[in-house]
Structures are given as structure tokens and as C-alpha cells.
Nucleic acid binder design. Structure first.
Lengths: 197, 197, 197, 197
DNA sequence: CATGAATGAGTCTTCATTCAT
DNA sequence: AATGAATGAAGACTCATTCAT
């Protein structure tokens, strides 16, 4: 990576971190530039305004590619194993993209008319649809009851997203893998039993 | 209500509204005072600093009382009806306290070391426990399987909280009662089937 | 004068001085506020932006009222005495409004699309017309040759304006009343002889 | 012309244009370098500071040589024809050096202690003297009355300079040759009649 | 108790200028 | 000689907060 794109990247990473820690308004361009190890002016040569930097940061990451891969992986698994894998990957993603997600949620609330809103809406919609397609397939195979697949997807997502969110917000450092497996197992058990024919 | 406490109240209400719309940093004391119909200085006579105003706003509302009442109401209902009622009340609360919730979530993220963190933690813990106690009772009655009641509570909460959150964030105005009953019914169906013996 | 309008006035006076000395861009809001003896923020509470302050400063002064008065004063004077009085008053005005004029000229050049352009254009047009009316009257009385009165007005103005401008720019402090009377006399002599029948 | 001096020239021309359009402070080195088609650093290699670039630009042009030539041309012309030619040449010069003149005037006002002041002073003084010499010669020939030749020169200059300035500032593009000849004729008529014996 | 006027500290942003290649 | 990248200093402007009435 050449110097330019490395500087660019450093700034985006610093912004990702600080936006997620302090919110868009709470993070100053001065802090961000220092965290990135460059001068404030350099930040502004790379991104013409703070707002554009936010857009860049948000545009940089998505979890849809990972999800597509996932669907091909679970074809041969049992329903329970499939859901377990999906849950694991979802939590992996949420943990990995923790900062990005925090920014997304905070800023979508703060300025509902912004571009972020559209991005966020699209992302969620696509996630729900993808999961719903899986549920419908399984219903057609006769494995599942005929609940509404979209609501199923939202319930599944809600359970894990709130779990992640709570752990992230409340325990922050004490996040442990053991807890996590227990949680996945408990949640999946309920969900499988609740949807299986 | 005398003039003093009415002014006080107006300020808190204005702050609640603006904090929830624009975040703590995004809402200026000037705006808040104007929304409350008083001068900026008056705001500062009532609350010595913006931070204190936030604390006051947050401390003002909780949903625990409503929950306690609820538990006595559902004794005689069937499991399904009980969950439906709980879900309805939870969503009612979330919608009614929408602003408060938004602030809580945003600010807990933004400043993890603040008092809000403790408040939020306690609130959630108590909510989960209360629900868990109900589940445990039902397990002891032999109605439910022996899932971990705390995780059950979290799953239940997660489903409805994320549903509310998504509706709130994405559709904002198009929030309709029909959708809501459909959602409650679908979610409860899955959850009941997933936890009943 | 109450405190508010005195502060307001101080700021305008300070701006007038500094804009005229250093130009619009050269004078900083910080300097202006210090010159006015107030904080920078106070300046911005009184004038929402530097640009508005400029407009206020420019809008504050004009020389048309003085000119109207003048025309009634010269009715009974000889042509030469009338021109001498007009020249004196014009120079008085130019000297008194020195700062204002400097700003006007500089800023009309710098941003031709601004409001100032219209103001300036109107002012000059009116000045020329008023003087032309006087010349036409005198032509009708048979006192003057039939030169184009508008061009006569512009010639008269040009002579004295450039004189003022040169003295102002080049000698600044050495401006003396003796020089001035000599100049007026010389210029008027040429102009009278050049236009009298 | 080699590459170096062409680059040098491009920069000076770009600076001339932008300084005259936006003033010294309003024109940024970035803009100037782009207008010149070189990088900003190149500009600074050629001129060690913005201030030096201004001096270079100003030093580049003068109208005295043209004036000297002129004086030899008018020997055989009538007084009226001579003044007409001088006026034409003066306006030609002013129009051609429009940018230069604008900068000169603006900057002499803005920073009275600078070198420009001296340059400007010298230039004007020499112009006035040259013209005054012509008037004195004509007085000695008995063609003109015995007005003070220096003031005559200033009156003549003032009339045409203000005419040019007003046209330049106010009509900018609508500058037409017909108007100009009318103006020259009117002004010269008055001036000739005003100074001829 | 309530307020209009005032402010120091800080915001984002732009400037002329230098460094490394 | 020429440049893309980088910067310290300074710009206009806004913030939460205090003073005098």
C-alpha cells in the first residue's frame, strides 16, 4: 500500500474508532487526525468535510458478502446446526464490526434524513430477506411450520442482536466465549423448537 | 402545579424531546430553553449544567412499576395470553417512552463511565429477572420446558425490542397498529411453541 | 443611547475603521471586536456574519441628503461661487466619509455581484443627475454653453474625486487646508471658463 | 522563450488576473498556481513568497514609456487634437493595464507602508510632470492661459481616470467605443475651452 | 425568579509554506 | 526543475456558561 492510501486508511480507522466511542459530534477532527498520526489539515485534504469522512467510514463495511457465503455453507447441515452456524457468524460479524454498527445506529437516530438511513434500511432489508429465503426453503421441505418467514428472520435477528448489544454495552471487557456458546445454544434451542414442524 | 415546578417541567420535557431527536451533544441549551419557552439563563438556574439536566431527564422515567403491576394481572391467563399481554405492554411502554429510550441508548454508548450506565444496567437486570421469575414459575407448574429462564427473558425482550427499534428508526411515521398485532401474534406463536413442554 | 445600541455602534465604527484600513478580507473579526472593546462572540451576536457587518457598515452612510440641501443653497450665488461651494462640500464629504468611500471602492471591485454594486451604482447615478440638473438649468438661463450636462457632471466629479483620492492615498497626513483652497480655485477656474458661454 | 521563463511568465499572468479580480488577499496561491497550470510548489520555487509575487507583478508594467513617445508625436498637432490623442492613449493604457491598475489601487490602500506606495507615487508624479511640461510649453507659446500646469495635469487626468474607473466598475462588459469617443470629445471640449487663452 | 448581554474555550475549515521524492 | 503530500497558524463561527440588572 502506498503512502497516500495508507494515510487515507489511517484516518478512516481513527474516525471509525472515535466516532464509535464518542459519536459523530463528540469526536473532533483534531482528535481524529491525532489518532491517525497526521495533522488536522491532512485530514481535510483527504476528506473535504467531516460529514464526508463519516460517509466514507460507513460506506467501507458491510456484512452482506459474508452472509451470501454463509447460505451456501449450510445446505448440508441439520436445521439446528445451520441456525447455530448462522448465529455464530452473525455474532462474529457484530463483534468484528462493533464500531461500525455503533456509529450506524447512533447516526441513523441522530439525523434521520441522511444518506445513512437509506444504507441502513437497505442492509437490514437484505439481511431479513436472505434469512427469510432460507426459512421458506425449509418450510417447503416440510421441516418447519408455516410461520411468516420474514417475522421469523426478524425474531432470530432480534434475539442475537440484543444479546450482542447488551453484552457490548454492559460488560464491554468481560465478554467471554463460554457465555457466548451457552447463549447461542439456549437461544437456538428455543428458536428451533418454536419453528420446527 | 406552581410556576417553579411548571418551568422545571417544561425544561425537562423540552430536553427530553431535543435530546432524543438530536442527541445530547446535538441539542444546544439555547434550543432547549427556547423549546421550553424560557430564557437560557433560567435553564441554568434550574439545572446547574447541561449534564445535570440529562441526568434529571433520564432519572424521571422507568418502566419497572408498570411491569410489577403486569405480573399480578397475568396470573389467571393462559401462557399464550400472558405473553401476548406482556408483549403489548412492553411495546406500549417502548412507544410511550420512545424518547427516553433513545436517549438512554445513545448516551450509554457515548459515555460508558457515566451514571447512566449503572441506571441502565440495573433497569435491564431487573426487567430480565422479573420476566425470568415468571418463566420459572411456569416451569415449576410443568407448563414449560426447562430452558434457562434468564436467556428466555432476554430472547423475548430482544425480539420485541428490535422490532420496536426497527419500526421506530425506519418507518417512523408509518407505524401501524395492524402490523403490530400481526407481529405480536407471529412472535408469540414462535416463542410459545419454543418454550412449551 | 442604551447599552445595546452603543455596543452595536462601537462594532460598526470599529469595522468601518478596520475595513477601510485593511480591506474586508484583511480585517479579522477578532481585530474588529477588540477595536470595539467587546468579545468576538458579542460581535457575532450582533451581526450574524462578517458579510452582514459589511453591509451594515456600507448602508450606514450616504452623501445624497447633503447634496439636496446644497442645491437649495446655491440658487442665489454666481456660477463660480456655486461651483466653489459644491466643490468644497464634495471634498468635505469625501474627507469625512473617507473610510466609507475606501471600503466602497475596494469591495465593489472585489465582488462585483454583491449588493454593494447596486448601492454604489445608484449613488453615483443620483449624484451625476443632480449635478446635471443644475447645469441644465444654467444652460437654459443662457449662462452656459450647450455641453452635455451629464458629461459635465462627470468631469467635475472626476477632477475632485481624483484630487481627493491622490491626497488621501499619497500624502495622508500632510493634508493641508491651504493646498486645498488653491486646488479648488484652480480647478474651478478651468471648469468655469470651460463651460461658460 | 525557454521553459523556465515561460513558467515564470504564466505565473505572473495568472497572478495579475487573480489579484485584480479578487484582490491580493482574496486570491490564493493555490488558485494562482492552477490558473498558471503549475503546481503550488513550483510557484514557490519561482517566487519565495506571495508578497514577492505581488511585487513582481506590479513591477512588470508601467505607462511612462508610452507617454514619452506620445509627447514627440503631438508636436505638430493642434491643441485640441493633441489633447484628444493624449486622452485616447491614456484610456487605451488604462484599459490595457486594467488589471494592473486595479491591483495597484487596491494594494496601495491596503498597505500604505509597502513598496508599492513609492512606486505608485513616483509614477503619478512623473505622469503629472510630463503633462505639466506640455502645458507650460503651450503657455509659453501664448496658446494657453496661465493656470498652474500641475493642477491642469491633475484635472485632465482626473476626468479621464474617473471616467475609465466608472465604466470599468459599473458597466464592465458594456464598454463601447462609441460612448468612448463621445466622452473624449465632450471632455476635451470643456478642457480646451477652459484652458485656451 | 427571570433575563438580555457578554464571554473563553473550542468547533470546523483554509491559508501560505515546506518536505521528500 | 517539478510535484503530491504534509503542516502550523490563523480564519469565521458556536458552544455552554456567567454577569448585571
Amino acid at each position: 500500500m502506498d503512502k497516500v492510501s495508507s494515510t487515507n486508511d489511517n484516518i478512516i480507522k481513527a474516525a471509525l474508532k472515535l466516532f464509535s466511542e464518542k459519536g459523530y459530534l463528540g469526536a473532533t477532527t483534531r482528535e481524529i487526525s491525532r489518532e491517525a498520526g497526521v495533522s488536522e489539515v491532512t485530514l481535510f485534504r483527504h476528506f473535504p468535510a467531516k460529514e464526508k469522512l463519516l460517509e466514507e467510514v460507513i460506506g467501507k463495511y458491510s456484512f452482506l458478502p459474508a452472509l451470501k457465503d454463509l447460505l451456501s455453507e449450510i445446505h448440508d447441515l441439520s436445521y439446528r446446526d445451520a441456525l447455530t452456524l448462522i448465529a455464530q457468524r452473525l455474532l462474529d460479524f457484530l463483534v468484528m464490526r462493533k464500531d461500525w454498527i455503533r456509529i450506524m445506529h447512533a447516526e441513523v437516530q441522530r439525523s434521520p434524513e441522511s444518506k445513512l438511513h437509506g444504507i441502513f434500511h437497505g442492509l437490514m432489508e437484505e439481511f431479513f430477506n436472505t434469512l427469510a429465503v432460507y426459512f421458506r426453503t425449509m418450510q417447503e421441505k416440510g421441516v418447519l411450520t408455516d410461520f411468516d418467514p420474514t417475522y421469523g428472520a426478524r425474531a432470530f435477528h432480534g434475539i442475537f442482536f440484543c444479546y450482542f448489544n447488551m453484552e457490548d454495552v454492559l460488560r464491554r471487557d468481560r465478554y467471554r466465549i463460554a457465555d457466548r456458546n451457552k447463549a447461542i445454544s439456549e437461544f437456538v434451542t428455543i428458536f428451533v423448537k418454536g419453528t420446527e414442524r
